Each structure stands twice: as structure tokens, then as C-alpha cells.
Simulated scan of single mutants.
Amino acid sequence: MSREVILYIAASVDGYIAEPDGSIDFLGGGIELVEEDTSYQELMEKIDTVVMGRTTYDQVVNELAVDQYPYEEQSSYIITSRPDQNTEKLFFTSQGPVELIQELKEQEGEAIWVVGGASIIAPLVEANLIDTYILTTIPTILGKGIRLFNEFNGPVNLKVNQVYVKNDMVYTTYKTR
């Protein structure tokens, strides 16, 4: 059995996941949340593992969720050249993203969420290891920043599985062919 690998991420209309300094303030973008959005809760019910780079991890624990790590129910793998102390569910590894995901896909478990960032996503896209792409398009054009998809040897062919709009954001789910 091979576990599903999901990229669930938000980007600007012009394809940036962060501003040039790495901040993600644009995600709020003055959007008025008038409709209930359960996509994050639905994702969390499907996964038991998260994978992210060290920069994303540091942003989560130092800026976004200072008081409580939001993925303490899941096993977390942080890909880094600066290892830290592992815990029961928090694993710091210098293993490359492709090798790590290939290893995790073969283990027992539920779906795996690739949280970010771009340096983790790019090799996984190129190796075609992401099964489901859930992209939320934020109605903002940044003009510059950190790209969701860097240049790579493609193509990776996808098919549209679902598209809907909530709170002026476009949610598109793609599956690999």
C-alpha cells in the first residue's frame, strides 16, 4: 500500500507562496471570511504525517503558532541541515525530500501532507511524488517573492478533480495522471 502525498498550499494569483522576505502576510489579504471553509479540517482528518523544511518549521513555531505546535497529533518530519532534538513525533532529518517521501510512502499510515517550502516542493514535483495538489489561489498579485513552482524538468501532467470558490479564494484540486 502506498500512502497518498498531498500538497495543500496557498499562493498568490501570480504563483508566489511568500513575499521576498519569506513573510506570508498576504494570505490574509483583506479577505472577508463570510463562508465557512472546512478544507483544512478535512485535510487534517486524512493525514497523520507532515513534512516541511526548516524555514517553514521555524515560521510555524516562531510566528504562526508560538504557544502550541499545530501538528502535535501528527508525526512531523523537518528536513534541515541544522538538526535539532527529536521527540516522539518530531523528527529532524538531513535526508532529501525525495528519499524521505519514498520511504514514508511505503510505511503504514494515512496520507502525508507536504507543508512547504519551495525547496522541499520542487524536487517532489519533479520526481512526481505528489499525488494530490490542493492549491488555494489568494486574490492578490505580489509581483515578486518565493515561487510555488521553480523551474524543473517537466512536465508533470495533472487532471482537475475539483474547483470551487469561497471567500473570494479559488480552491483547485488536481490529481496526478
Score class of each variant (00 low, 15 high):
Q85K: 15
V98Y: 13
V98R: 06
E99H: 13
P97Q: 02
R82C: 08
L100Q: 05
L90K: 02
G96K: 09
E88I: 07
I101D: 01
N86M: 05
Y77M: 03
L90W: 06
F91R: 06
S75Q: 11
Q74C: 08
L100C: 05
P97I: 00
F92E: 02
S75V: 12
L100M: 11
P83A: 03
E88N: 12
G96H: 09
S94N: 15
V98L: 09
E99S: 10
Q102W: 01
K89W: 07
S81L: 08
S76T: 15
S94Y: 08
N86F: 08
Y77S: 01
P83D: 06
T87D: 11
T87H: 07
E73K: 15
F92Y: 14
L100A: 03
F91Y: 14
Q95L: 09
Y77E: 03
Q102H: 12
P83G: 08
Y77Q: 02
R82I: 13
F91G: 01
I79M: 01
I101R: 01
I78Q: 00
S94C: 10
T80W: 04
L90I: 06
P83T: 06
T80H: 07
S81T: 13
I101S: 00
L100I: 04
E99T: 08
F91M: 07
Q95R: 12
R82V: 13
S81P: 04
F91W: 10
